[in-house]
Design a protein around this nucleic acid. Structure first.
Length: 832
RNA sequence: GGGCGGGUGGCGAAACUGGUAGACGCGCCAGACUUAGGAUCUGGUUCCGCAAGGAGUGAGGGUUCGAGUCCCUCCUCGCCCACCA
């Protein structure tokens, strides 16, 4: 055996990678301990892996290896979020089939992942664009349709008048299409949606259980779900029998309502507008529709509105207030109508000033300050005490809110109401590269076009092969509608001619349940085995970017509940502990991007320094959750450290066969102490997610081992050999290849992950003599050393013998002494 | 505007529950070995000061024997959301 003169990472890394591969070292089920499921967000296989991926997977990999060493049966899988827009857009541009491009990218990803030595169980690889995967999306769709969780609705979409197709919000720039610069309009189109709002409360409540999720993620979800408690109130439209329902969180201000505003596309607009106002209202509504929701509700946009000519009646006072339309009121939040109280709402105030609408103060601050409508320069939006509010005058806002809502309900003119910011999830896309929605339309059996689901035994509905240049044009009908062999089918009911649904599913569907598919990736009777679900779920550690805080991470929590209802999964919450890693920026502190020319390719680092250096550097650079800027110098430093480890191990290789069974003392004992202290430090650091300090601990340890002269006695040799073996094991999660090489040359017979995580002897990690800080009035005046077992009296005696302490206490009156065992002594004195 | 994070040497960062601020690494300085070294090893390195000593964790206040850590006010950077009624 024997270690080479020089540290040559490329040679040892490929050697160990193939050994791990051949021995199937990382396949789940190999170890018999309790289970641990470590997962990283599956990547969308774009061109090349970037540093963000490297870091993401390293965090998972460190844990996977650590837990494996601790004897857990670890599941650590990897797969591909292979459907999606970029591949389809690239296809439109380059005429390469998305499947081809995606497959190339996957190959390149696999190669890079393997070169970094990640401990994946490749036997469970999942590809979401494979029919054996997406057939289960279709299966879920059908189950959920039957349970009423999937439904069809009409919804506004961005319609490009040039491409004659639906485009995404991001593609709309200033109301025009990013690609062809034609006008984009709102258009009502049918779409499929998940009734995720049925789960809003459950998803909100579930957040309280997620104690091991970062606060900022749960708080973002809380915001996104956006529960708001308030009241609904009915304003009857004068002389029309129509009701305007408004939602408000501040029903306590209702006596100050001086007008009511509807969204421009509110369904009552046409029926309540008076004849003389009709022309103007129609122009306004049409203009708003043409502008699109994005543009018209942009922050900072001027408030604009138009009077409908209609009047509505305040449910409490019967007061007659005008009904307006305004650009800033949204038809899909609350009831699409608001009561305006300019004295107590910023937007209403601004609007009222512009259109000279009256302002009535009905809340006075509790500070005693007196507001008057005439003198008001800004809306007073805080809680206070009611006035000019009939029987409620004198009540506090909080109390009035409840009481007034109850009274509305009693009168049949409203109720307590809860509104959610979260909307149902529209998931159909007019795209090719996604899961086909398993529905057919038959004019005979289904004249209303509600859709007939494809029978389960006919799944999967596969994506047809296509001529890319004809089908993927980015314009006109949805791509699948251009493929007659796909569209034309037979009705499952009447066997007559029928047409298939040509829309595909949002790719967020794919990532809703992939983690469960890893449990039984080849199962063709179910999405996954419920038994495996009971064995492995929930995922113990999930690692990914915080950019998924509210889409993916909310959708898959929703899906998890659905899977539980379907009897597939035992858990509500899919993930116990979530880790969100920070961004790796370029050396210039800017986001890595081709535009700035500051991209560092993982492959180039591996080629130059080896995977272990890349791994050590990325883990050492800072805490996982924080962003950091790439630093070539620090990479050099990490590499230097690994070379030092190599040289150290090589220098003492002769010790590998040493044995000793007596009592360690002197230098040999010091070596053992250093090893065991390091073990404790690294173990604690990994448990606290502090990988950078874990590595710092090993660095200190290596420095300490360098300081020991050549071991001469058997005891010293044996201690040194033990120390190097310890080093190899402690580094295994971070630099596994180097560790294997070290371990092997020191007599290791198995892979380091199979050697177990080292334990330390508690007796060896405590010192006999400890440093104490001696303070006078909180200022450090001396440092002394005292036996670990010493009590206050003994430490004081040592301290008071110190010249500096004596000098600082001389002539002062001692008031008190604070003694903190094992740390410090503080003399509190007066005078001088 | 709302929510959530940060702000500590020349730089990346440590300091787990209030207890010697700056571990570890980078950079820099000095020395050693060297034909040479941008290789390696050893030592030094918060700032001011020759020193004794003093100052110091974005700013200001407070609690405490003692505050980077807790409380209040403010400044600043980043991310997410945002005319949400």
């Amino acid at each position: 055996m024997g270690m080479n003169e020089r540290y040559e990472p490329q040679a040892i890394e490929s050697k160990w990678q193939s050994r791990w591969n051949e021995s199937r070292l990382f396949e789940a089920g190999r170890r018999k301990g309790p289970r641990k499921y470590v997962l990283e967000m599956l990547p969308y296989p774009s061109g090349k892996m970037h540093m963000g991926h490297v870091r993401n997977y390293l965090i998972g990999d460190v844990y996977a290896r650590y837990f494996a060493m601790k004897g857990f049966d670890v599941l650590h899988p990897m797969g591909w979020d292979a459907f999606g827009l970029p591949a389809e857009n690239a296809a439109i541009k380059d005429k390469v089939h998305p499947a081809v491009r995606t497959e190339e990218n996957i190959q390149s990803f696999v190669k890079e992942l393997k070169s970094l030595g990640y401990s994946y169980d490749w036997s469970r690889e999942v590809n979401t664009s494979d029919p054996s995967y997406y057939r289960w999306n279709q299966w879920f769709f059908i189950q959920m349709l039957e349970k009423g969780i999937v439904y069809r609705r009409f919804s506004k979409v961005n319609w490009c008048t040039g491409c004659l197709t639906v485009i995404a919000n991001e593609q709309v720039v200033d109301g025009t299409c990013e690609r062809c610069e034609s006008k984009v309009e709102d258009k009502e189109m049918p779409e499929w949606a998940f009734r995720i709002t049925k789960y809003s409360q459950a998803l909100l409540d579930g957040l309280d259980e997620l104690k091991e999720w970062p606060e900022r993620i749960t708080s973002m979800q809380r915001n996104w779900i956006g529960r708001s408690e308030g009241a609904e109130a009915v304003f009857k439209v004068e002389g029309s029998g129509q009701d305007i329902r408004v939602f408000t969180t501040r029903v306590d201000t209702i006596f100050g309502c001086t007008y009511v505003v509807l969204a421009p596309d509110h369904k009552l607009v046409a029926s309540i507008t008076t004849a003389e106002r009709k022309a103007e209202v129609e122009v306004f509504a049409a203009e708003m529709a043409a502008l699109g929701k994005e543009a018209r509700t942009q922050e900072g946009a001027e408030k604009r509105g138009v009077f409908t000519g209609a009047y509505a009646l305040n449910p409490f006072t019967g007061a007659r207030v005008p009904v307006w339309l305004a650009n800033f009121v949204l038809s899909d939040y609350g009831t699409g109508a608001v009561m305006s109280v300019p004295a107590h709402d910023e937007r209403d105030f601004e609007f009222a000033k512009k259109y000279a609408l009256p302002v009535t103060v009905v809340i006075q601050p509790e500070t005693g300050e007196k507001l008057s409508a005439a003198a008001l320069e800004n809306a007073f939006t805080e809680y206070g005490v009611l006035e000019n509010s009939g029987p409620y005058s004198g009540m506090k806002s909080a109390d009035a809110r409840t009481k007034m809502a109850q009274d509305l309900e009693a009168k049949g003119l409203g109720k307590l109401a809860i509104t959610w910011r979260q909307k149902d999830w529209g998931f159909s896309r007019q795209r090719y590269w996604g899961t086909p929605i398993p529905v057919v339309y038959c004019t005979t059996c289904d004249p209303d076009r509600r859709g007939i689901t494809v029978p389960l035994e006919q799944l999967p509905v596969k994506l047809p092969d296509i001529d890319v240049s004809e089908v993927l044009t980015g314009r006109g009908d949805p791509p699948l509608a251009k493929v007659p062999s796909f569209v034309n089918t037979t009705c499952p009911r009447c066997k007559g001619p029928a047409r298939r649904e040509t829309e595909t599913m949002d790719t967020f569907v794919d990532s809703c349940w992939y983690y469960a598919r890893y449990l039984s990736p080849k199962d063709d009777s179910a999405p996954f085995s419920p038994q495996a679900g009971r064995d492995w779920l929930p995922v113990d550690i999930y690692v990914g970017g915080p950019e998924h805080a509210v889409m993916h991470l909310l959708y898959f929590r929703f899906w998890s509940r659905v899977m539980k209802e379907l009897g597939l999964s035992p858990v509500d919450e899919p993930v116990r502990r979530l880790i969100t890693q920070g961004i790796v920026n370029g050396p210039d502190g800017r986001k890595m991007s081709k535009r700035w020319g500051n991209v560092v390719q993982p492959s180039s680092i591996v080629a130059k320094y080896g995977a272990d250096t890349a791994r050590a550097y990325v883990m050492f650079a800072g805490p996982p959750e924080r962003d950091f800027d790439w630093s070539d110098d620090q990479v050099e430093g990490a590499h230097r450290f690994l070379k030092r480890v190599w040289v150290l191990a090589q220098a003492h290789e002769a010790c590998a066969s040493a044995t000793f069974s007596g009592t360690y003392e002197g230098k040999a004992l010091e070596i053992r102490r250093a090893a065991h202290k390091c073990c404790k430090r690294v173990t604690d650091a990994i448990e606290r997610l502090s990988f950078n300090t874990a590595i710092a601990g090993v660095m200190e340890y290596v420095n300490a081992l360098y300081a020991f002269e050549a071991p001469s006695s058997d005891a010293e040799k044996a201690a040194m050999a033990e120390a190097i073996r310890m080093l190899a094991l402690l580094l295994t999660p971070f630099t596994p290849h180097l560790s294997e090489e070290l371990s092997e040359s020191y007599g290791g017979k198995t892979a380091t992950v199979d050697q177990g995580w080292p334990s330390y002897d508690p007796a060896l990690v405590v010192d006999d003599v400890l440093p104490y800080a001696v303070q006078v009035n909180g200022k450090l005046r001396a440092e002394i050393r005292a036996p670990a077992a010493a009590g206050e009296a003994e430490v004081r005696a040592i301290a008071e013998a110190d010249e500096r302490v004596k000098a600082n206490l001389a002539g002062k009156q001692l008031k008190k002494v604070v003694f903190v065992p094992k740390r410090l002594l503080n003399y509190v004195v007066a005078g001088g």
